[in-house]
Write a protein that binds this DNA or RNA. Structure first.
Lengths: 198, 198
DNA sequence: TGTACATCAGTGAACGCGCGTTCACTGATGTAC
DNA sequence: TGTACATCAGTGAACGCGCGTTCACTGATGTAC
């Protein structure tokens, strides 16, 4: 019989996964050491291996968790063009740009993930597939192939626009990247909607 | 008077910058140690600091060099829609996806660059500004603001589509991401051209 | 023409440091009697 | 009700290793005489 409640260890594991998500998005995966990750969760480095088999194991769990949250947020949007347009505006906002730790995992980590091992990329594949589907069903349910293509277009414009806005040191250029991203995403969105009407 | 020709050291420096570009794009910046970088250039680690003040100094030089090459390649395209469409097809090809070391630096390194220090991001800012301008002048010279927005849209679709195609472990999905990317990029391209006619 | 010297790109061992991982131990708790 | 024990989440020091960086040294070369 466990001394702590049955959920105690599960809760700690969840806390590690959540705080690690923030840390990874802020400092990168390579840039976040186990000691720092555990300190974020108010623990010491030694406890890590009671919860995860390795750092890669944590990374795979964090990636899955991050994309699941993003999917859930999308799933809670009301149907229709307006909600998606709002989402695009929030995504490409200065607030999101300036706070990577609370933001989109793909914008912060996508090309680092592409250099990770199989299990991490499998977790990413599953998560991003669900997100693209979630976007696609909100576009034109009658033309799934076309909707899938448009969903990918929206996703890629958002992700790389945010990455670019973050990389650039010229504030005015950065703001312009965000505005252009919104404009282009809305163009693609409307293209998808018009085609759905045909 | 130097024992070696006056260009000897300059040539070595260039060789380091070029091989480091390939290594960074393959293994990431954090993932590439000085010893490996120097071995790539047929040198030993100790010689590094005769050429660069620090690893960050090398990174800034590599970023500038990589983006300059990409800009030069764009500048050599003949004018008109067809050449740009070809470029898009080449960019989002399986060959480019499967060989990051010879490919686009933004697709391989953009979110790692956004976590780098000022000089590296300054170099990226200058380089990417020139690339966006180069694309924009090929769209609709009469409407520079619109062309700039469309150029950013093309750039971001290309970059994130390639990142996504590389990250995903499902080959069919990866191919689909490339195809959708081409489709969406061409849609945006034609939108830019039509608007230019109005 | 031949020898001694100055130059300096490159060598390779070493530095302190933080990484991912391991492990003997702690100490608060629930249970047994 | 009170005491002894078993449990196990978490501690913190230690491991080998590779990192970025430093530095005393090498050795091939061009020049001086």
């Amino acid at each position: 019989v466990a001394r702590y409640g049955a959920e105690h260890k599960t809760e700690t594991r969840r806390r590690i996964i959540e705080t690690a998500g923030r840390r990874f998005k802020q400092d990168g995966i390579d840039g976040s050491g186990i000691s720092a990750l555990m300190a974020d969760a108010d623990l010491t480095n030694g406890a890590f291996y009671a919860h995860f088999a390795s750092k890669d194991d944590l990374v795979a769990n964090v990636v899955a968790d991050q994309l699941r949250s993003q999917r859930d947020a999308l799933a809670m949007l009301p149907p229709g063009r307006a909600a998606l347009a709002d989402y695009i505006g929030d995504y490409l906002s200065p607030g999101h740009r300036d706070q990577p730790s609370a933001g989109c995992p793909s914008a912060a980590l996508l090309d680092e993930i592409s250099r990770c091992d199989g299990p991490v990329r499998d977790a990413y594949t599953d998560g991003v597939t669900a997100i693209i589907s979630e976007i696609a069903t909100r576009l034109s349910p009658n033309e799934p192939a076309m909707a899938h293509t448009t969903a990918l277009g929206l996703f890629t414009i958002l992700v790389a626009s945010l990455q670019l806005a973050r990389a650039v040191t010229d504030r005015k250029l950065s703001d312009q990247v965000l505005h252009s991203g919104v404009h282009n995403a809305l163009s693609l969105l409307d293209l998808g909607y018009h085609n759905a009407d045909n």
